[in-house]
Design a protein around this nucleic acid. Structure first.
Lengths: 150, 150
DNA sequence: ATTTATGCAAATCGTTTGCAAACCT
DNA sequence: AGGTTTGCAAACGATTTGCATAAAT
């Protein structure tokens, strides 16, 4: 899903949640759709400084509630945001650098994802959890940090 | 690994890192070893209030550097700590409740873990990452929250 | 007109840090 | 003694919130 479709879908999801698709929210969706990895609030504001920081926080929360955006938590530092998977047709996971905190996307073979979902579903049932999704991150050291020292 | 062994191993790891196994650190290890799920700093201090908050933070950082303790980040809220897996002989993942933030442990069949590791290793190689580990969380709603409403 | 979104500045809260006293070896 | 750990209180920084103004419907 790209370009106009994206905004149509985002607007529809917001409307379904009783929310408006304002210019600030559109900017946020645009910035995120232009990135191949989750962005921090700081990175978002660097790219489009016309949005006030507090509005960015507020609107990302609204967009998350409406299912347009997804909040990714990597380790201790600050949150990162990406478009919700249903809006990108791209189920993926994250590579997180344990040294610099950088995040990159990756995905795994379709068949393997299915097997993973099945296993998780079994575990959830055993524990009495209603599955909503999963989060799989690979933690390691990125190329930059490896080159930098050892 | 339980009881005295745990402390022997913890002490060894700290020593290898040039650190002492002080009474505060021992308390932290004890509290974590007595729990079947990761604990927040607040929960730790509730159980053993003789440790100052700042010491808890400092010592958990030391213990993490030495590989005795592992910091788990669930969603936005605060960090949770658990003993490092090598000290518990118990590779596991987390069920995270999207409503109340509760965390429970679960594990998956051995063979599946191996397959998962292999897939992750492939992805890491492609992206130039040196694998250190992975993080797999199932996100859903726990039994309590499901019972509470819907 | 009325409701909702915005931006600024101030408040919040988990976490970190400076420093002097207590502790080890 | 010499270096480390501790606890307190103050500082930090990402995120949240109160409030008055500006859009949107």
């Amino acid at each position: 899903m790209t370009g106009a479709d994206l905004h149509v879908t985002a607007a529809a999801r917001l409307r379904a949640d009783g929310q408006r698709y304002t210019s600030n929210r559109k900017v946020l969706v645009e910035v995120l759709s232009g990135s191949d990895r989750p962005l921090t609030i700081h990175e978002i504001l660097d790219r489009r400084s016309e949005v006030a920081q507090s509005s960015a926080y507020r609107n990302l929360a609204v967009l998350e509630r409406a299912g347009v955006v997804h909040r990714v938590v990597t380790h201790d530092e600050f949150a990162r945001y990406e478009l919700a998977e249903e809006l990108t047709d791209h189920h993926h996971h994250h590579l997180v650098c344990s040294e610099c905190g950088a995040v990159a996307d990756f995905s795994m073979p379709e068949g393997f994802e299915e097997r993973l979902d099945a296993e998780l579903e079994k575990a959830a049932r055993r524990a009495g959890f209603a599955t909503e999704g999963h989060r799989l991150d690979l933690v390691g050291r990125c190329r930059n940090c490896r080159d930098a020292r050892g």
